[in-house]
Design a binder for these strands. Structure first.
Lengths: 242, 242
DNA sequence: CACGTAAACGAACGAACGTTCGATAGGCGG
DNA sequence: CCGCCTATCGAACGTTCGTTCGTTTACGTG
């Protein structure tokens, strides 16, 4: 959707600016390292610079109109490179898709499987942290998530599988915490096994309908608070005292 | 007559078979009536028959690969008509899209704004009914909903607006019931104003991730029950006794 | 049976797509 | 200053797309 407002100016304030690994530069360095074989440009400082321009443009174009609708001529114009020149950075349009997809799933896994120690002993705190961490992550990497999970349906089979597996992994992390909570008695034993599956869409709505929430001036904290309330009031007994 | 035989065993998922208005035939009759001017075939019995074949094929092709990726040659082959012949039923590919979109939004509005009398006095019962009605509707018209709301982001601006407005209307219906419930004291006054917005993704996950729930052998009743539990435990005080 | 109209056909068109590849520019070592 | 390698360019190719339109078929009516 056009309201995404992800500025195509490369010198723009970067996403996840305070966390280097989540900055556009850090993400591009990761991608470059993971695709050394398909990227023919050997000078890393040049390659990262160009990759940044290409990916910013690709995310922007894809997120307003879809990945399939983005032509390499559009991408060429917006990134300031020739259509032929783009092929120094990927060997097919599908590879470009795979680059973005692999990077975002890698970041999700890295962040969500590394909770602070203070939280791992208490399922309630752990659950709260996961909701916060997931929402913060999607906020920092908004265009990446929109691309990876809103476009996923139109991807080629192999790439779609990647997206589905990534979602399944996240759901599994929630399922583990909830199972632990039930075993330790903090959560109701009647808690539906569907809960982990239903947490996901609650988290996804924040970036899927980002424009709507921005229009209504809903803050990330307000959204996050309501989601945590809904979840905990469901699975914690006597949740009125939360 | 060279081309294919017009088999009557159309592998049409006879959606909503018991409710004539929701059957594939009923939907097609509605669409024909609403597009008399752009459909050049004047014999209604022929037109409904062909429309049925075209729409079944269009929904099937779109829902596996996306609407943009569906070529009119694919559609021609699958529907058993020539590419040129298709243009007797729509004047452009976008019009075909609009036909489907308008029909599904019309049905949603018709069904959800007509609750049984027994339910309108009790916000809790009304909310339960709306969840059930919405889920049953999406189940009956699964391919239509998948098309209308999963493809929506790739639609042209005017058509995307249609889809967004339809979602906003549904959200508004939930908001009304919740507001009434708060005013009458059945719902907690602290109930977040975000709740109506967050109910939607809970309902949509049923058809968006339909394959996942089918694989796990989750019944519509189990899903519906969990969703209603989550919602009511959140907004009803002392919900433990539900 | 012949005729006229409704309906469907399918070859053809121009545009746009992803991709290729020979030409070209720029900087660095000798 | 020359020669080489890296990085980029942009015209061109073969496909495929949505759409058009002259032609053919099917069928009710006289």
């Amino acid at each position: 959707m056009a309201q995404l407002n992800y500025r195509s100016d490369v010198s723009a304030p970067e996403a996840g600016g305070d966390k280097p690994a989540l900055s556009m530069e850090g993400m591009c360095r990761d991608i470059l390292a993971r695709h050394e074989d398909t990227i023919s440009v050997r000078n890393p400082s040049i390659a990262v610079l160009r990759l940044k321009r290409i990916l910013v443009a690709a995310l922007d174009l894809s997120n307003s109109g879809g990945f399939q609708a983005m032509s390499l001529r559009d991408l060429s114009e917006k990134s300031g490179m020739s259509t032929g020149g783009l092929y120094a950075y990927f060997d097919s349009k599908t590879t470009l898709l795979r680059m973005i997809l692999a990077q975002v799933t890698h970041v999700v896994e890295t962040v969500l499987t590394d909770p602070p120690e203070a939280v791992t002993d208490d399922p309630v705190a752990h659950l709260r942290w996961m909701v916060d961490a997931h929402l913060r992550l999607t906020e920092d990497l908004l265009p990446w998530f929109v691309f990876a999970f809103m476009e996923a349906k139109n991807f080629p089979p192999a790439e779609r599988r990647l997206a589905i597996d990534s979602e399944a992994l996240t759901e599994g992390l929630f399922a583990d915490v909830i199972k632990t909570g039930i075993a330790q008695g903090q959560f109701r034993s009647e808690t539906s096994e569907l809960l982990p599956a239903l947490i996901k869409p609650l988290l996804q709505d924040w970036y899927v309908k980002r424009a709507k929430y921005r229009r209504r001036e809903i803050s990330l904290e307000a959204y996050s608070g309501t989601v945590k309330d809904i979840i905990l009031r469901y699975c914690v007994p006597n949740a009125g005292e939360l």
